[in-house]
Each structure stands twice: as C-alpha cells, then as structure tokens.
Design a binder for these strands. Structure first.
Length: 505
RNA sequence: GGAGCGUUGGUCAAGGGGUUAAGACACCUCCCUUUCACGGAGGAAUCACGGGUUCGAUUCCCGUACGCUCUACCA
C-alpha cells in the first residue's frame, strides 16, 4: 500500500506480570516487523496512575529480553520518539492539544458529570451508556450554553472530554486477519478521551502516539475490536484515514477447560504458568513463570508462535530466524486457541533435544546448585546431560534424572525390592560388590557382561537382579541404562551404593 | 440487554466446490527396552445445525444455535 518503513508497537500497561497472550502479541509484532525489515517499538501505556505497579516495567523488559524479543525503541532503549512512556508524553501537550481540536471541530465535547452522578445514572437506568441517545440529559458542553461551559472551565470544575459519536454512520476498516469489519456509530457510546486528571485514556493515547511514532501496523488482542470504531474515527478526524495504520486483531488464547480468556487464575488452578517469568504480587504471592518452570525461551516462543499461526507446512519446530522468515499475518487464525500445557511441554522437550547441551547447561547447573548438588567434573556433567536429556521435558527434570550421578541417593525405594528379596540375592550382591571392586575394565558393556556371568554362576536370572541394582544405584525406578550409570559414577561409588542399600534390606 | 467476532477429531490445526479430510500433542494397542524415556507400527473426526446456489459443499450465500469479547474518567 505504501513504501514506508514498517513500524509496529507493543503498548502494555505496567500493572503486573506479562501474560502469555501479551508475549504472543509481542511476538507477532516482532515477527511481522522483522520479516519486513521494520522496527519494533515498546511504548509504556501508563495513563492510569491509580494502577501503577512498582517494578512492572522493568519486569516487562526482563521478559522480553529472556524471550529474545528486544525492542528497537523503548523507554529503556531510547529512540527518535522519546519519551516512550505516556505519563511523560503528557508533557508534550499533544493529548490536550488534539482533544481541544476535536472539541473545537465539534467532534468531541466537555462533560462535567461527576463519577457519583454517572454511578447514579447507571443504577437508575439499566445498561446506561453515555451516548448520542443520552448525552442530552447530561451535564456537558452540548447541553450547557457556551457561556456556562466557559464559566465552569474558568472555575476549574473537573471535566472530561468525550468523543461525540456521529449519528448513523457505518464505520468500516479492513482488519488484516478478519477482512472488512463494520460498526454503526449510533450503537457506539461517547468514550472518554481525556480524563479529569489531564491524562488521555487509551483511546486518545493510542491514536495520538501511533501517529506521532509513525506506526504503520497496529496489532492487538481481539478484545479491542469493539472499541476500534472510536480509534478509526479519531484517525479520520485528526490525521486522515490514509495515515492510519493497518489493524490486525489477534485471536484470544483461551483456557484449556471450558471457555473464555486464559487468566492467571487458570494457571494457579490447573498447575501451569501463565506469565513469562515469575511475578511477585504486592501481597508476596507469586504467579509462576515459564522461565522458572524450566522452559527454554526458544521453546516458549516457538509454542506461542504456533498458537494462532502456522506456516501451512508440517513444520512445527521453528527457530526465531525461521519464524521471522516465514511469518505472515495472512496465516493467522481468526478463532481463539485453547492453551494446551502438554503441547507446551512437548515443544520444550524438542528444544532440549535440538539445542547443544552447552546452551542450557548453565541453567541446569544453577538448578543443581539450588538443590545443593555439587558438580566438580564439567566433562562428566556434560556427558550425563547428554545421556539423560531424552527423559527430560523441563529443565527441572534434570535434577531427578541426573542428580544421582553427582550425589548418592538418600531415599531408596526399598519397597520395590523387598517383596522378592531373599538370602540368595543378598549373597549375590555381596559378591557383586567384590566383583565390581576387582573388575579390571570399567565400561558399561564389560560391567553388564560380568554382572550377568555372576548371575548365571549363582543360578539367578538377570531380570530379577536388574531392578534391585537400579534402585541401589539411583534410588528409584528411573534413569538411563544401569551399567552406563555405573560406568559414570565409578567403581568406588557403585560399590558404596550397593553396600548402603544392602544394609537397608 | 446491545454490538462485534468466532465455530474442521479431546487439544493445536492443514485443506477450501469433486480428497481415502494432512500433520502434531494427548489418549489406547503393539514392537523395541528385564526401569522410565527415546524411537517405530497401528487406532479413532463427514468438518455446529437448517436452508439455499450448484451436476456436486466441509469449502460460496443466508439464517439459527452455541461460544467468546466488549459494553469504566482500565488497558
């Protein structure tokens, strides 16, 4: 349509943790921008000062950084359109200037109704809306004379500026995902544009700032669709429809059970994270994050990309580069998608297998340290991770699957041995200890060979001995091949662990 | 209540006038494995419903149902 450089933006309000759906919105913005060689801007939508939460902005930056979705321009990164916080942009005087202009042109008006008066009205009339059908009964510059209005303004009586929705106009626009969308203006209400504290509402701010920052494509969640006509009208009034960015309203991410938007409560209820990273609430409670749950950022991003978009091929595992290369708005779904934590875990597993061990080894090491497991031999560590990664879907799984290589198990599942335990087996393992101690070779295959030979010599079936041996070495019924474990933990440790469990039986 | 948006297996989804309606996750069966995984082979959907248009509709049109979102001086 035009040759302008693509510029997109994500404009969160810093009120809490960054929701999965928010990250996906960022992702689609980012992918679209990068696909077209454009810029991704992050603007902080902090127009509601009563909802400001300490630390939320910094948290958002951390999440984006973790995901590898860094903005080209933001309050942190700077850029040609500073400031990037709406609370600071207010000083530019843009919001007030445009609000006044709208009033002067008869496209908006001053309203002096107090919050109490509006509340009373809502109680009095069911489904009350401040609109062209009711504004004549309210206290505003449309019902007041020019002199009266001016007097109230001069006296400093608090007011808001409301858009004056026109009568019976079909407000249409072309959504990149949904095609033409149309609303009749008579059914829309007169939204507040400028609040009594002088701050703009989202409606005014998004239009003014998108214009000022030369945004070419505006993506947001589907929940914004009903207010789109306000924004389209504002664009028409202020800057002209030709300058308006192209809209795309992204489908919602739904809760796995039942219906409705996925909320952080669903995560707590169903036992999975909803935020990108852990978020600590003011009351000290924490909402779990994907990062802390053991997700790789590559997997998290990959999983999110596939929630509402697909390449049209059978490919499901994508690197960021591949996503950038293949992404297109045309292939974004219209319908919402239910979030499936099982599938999310599958992506993580795929990425654990796909990436070099070295790329996530530090994370696992950190987890080990938290559990007090000391890793001295880095080469062995890497070998072990390589050996067990097939059994780990989340990074945290490595603690159980690999921890016993570096620390003798304390809890031994003797209950799984005892029922079939007897003197004969006891004697066999005593002998096995000696055999291991004296074995000249210490390779898994050799160990297996001599172990089975010893079993045969004692007229025991290897099958009856393998599980006990496993439990002695790892503590439970898990882990890779027993003899590979023995090889890696070494002669001394192997003998020690067998002896220890023998003492418990 | 109103407006808008949506509806292919349990979930994510491809497809888009004529197909045996892909694939993935999960599930079940089997193989491999004397743990658990990994890997491999199988199993299950007639496309919300009702009307059109058409030789023919899951695919186009119109209704209906259902669901969701919004309906704040929140975003």
């Amino acid at each position: 349509m035009n040759n302008k450089k693509v510029r997109v933006r994500f404009a969160p309000s810093p009120t809490g943790g960054l929701h999965l759906g928010g990250v996906r919105t960022v992702l689609f913005n980012y992918l679209f921008a990068k696909h077209h060689g454009g810029d991704f801007i992050l603007r902080i939508e902090d127009t509601d000062q009563t909802r400001f939460v300490e630390g939320a902005e910094e948290y958002i930056f951390n999440c984006l950084k973790w995901c590898g979705l860094e903005p080209d321009e933001s309050p942190l990164h700077g850029g040609p359109h500073v400031p990037y916080r709406q609370s600071e942009r207010k000083a530019l005087g843009l919001y007030e200037k445009y609000a006044k202009q709208l009033v002067a042109n008869g496209q908006a008006y001053y309203a002096f109704d107090t919050a109490e008066e509006l509340d009373a009205k809502r109680k009095e009339i069911n489904n009350f809306q401040y609109s062209q059908h009711t504004r004549n009964a309210m206290k505003n510059s449309l019902t007041l004379s020019g002199a009266e209005t001016q007097q109230l303004l001069d006296e400093g009586v608090p007011y808001v500026v409301r858009i004056k929705m026109p009568e019976n106009v079909d407000v249409k626009f072309n959504d990149m995902i949904r095609g033409e969308v149309s609303f009749n203006s008579s059914l829309c209400d007169d939204k507040v544009l400028l609040k009594a504290d002088g701050m703009p509402t989202y409606h005014l701010a998004v239009v003014v700032d998108d214009h000022d920052m030369e945004i070419t494509h505006a993506f947001r969640g589907e929940e914004w669709l009903p207010s789109a006509p306000v924004h389209v009208l504002l664009w028409q009034y202020l800057f002209g429809l030709d300058a308006m960015p192209q809209w795309a309203h992204l489908p919602l991410i739904l809760k796995p059970d039942g219906n409705g938007k996925l909320s952080k409560r669903d995560g707590d209820r169903l036992g999975f994270p909803v935020f990108a990273m852990d978020w600590q609430n003011a009351d000290g409670t924490v909402n779990a994050g994907f990062k802390e749950r053991g997700f790789l950022p590559e997997a998290f991003v990959n999983m999110l990309a596939m929630l509402g978009w697909n390449a049209g091929t059978e490919q499901e595992v994508f690197t960021m580069e591949e996503l950038v290369q293949q992404f297109s708005m045309e292939r974004v779904h219209k319908g919402g998608a239910k979030f499936d934590f099982e599938k999310a875990k599958w992506y993580n597993h795929e990425w654990i297998k796909k990436l070099e061990v070295g790329s996530w080894k530090p994370e696992v090491k950190k987890l080990f340290e938290e559990k007090g497991i000391v890793v001295m031999d880095d080469a062995k560590f890497e070998k072990v991770l390589e050996l067990v990664k097939d059994r780990c879907t989340l990074l945290n799984d490595f603690v159980q699957q690999a921890g016993f290589f570096f620390q003798s198990p304390t809890a031994i599942d003797t209950a799984s041995i005892k029922p079939k335990w007897d003197e004969k087996k006891q004697l066999f393992f005593v002998e096995a200890i000696r055999m291991f101690e004296q074995s000249s070779l210490w390779q898994a295959t050799d160990l297996e060979h001599s172990f089975k030979e010893l079993a045969a010599a004692n007229q025991l079936k290897p099958g009856e001995l393998m599980l006990p041996l496993r439990i002695m070495l790892v503590g439970g019924k898990f882990g890779p091949g027993v003899f590979e474990i023995a090889e890696l933990i070494g002669r001394e440790e192997t003998a020690k662990r067998i002896g220890y469990t023998l003492g418990l039986l």
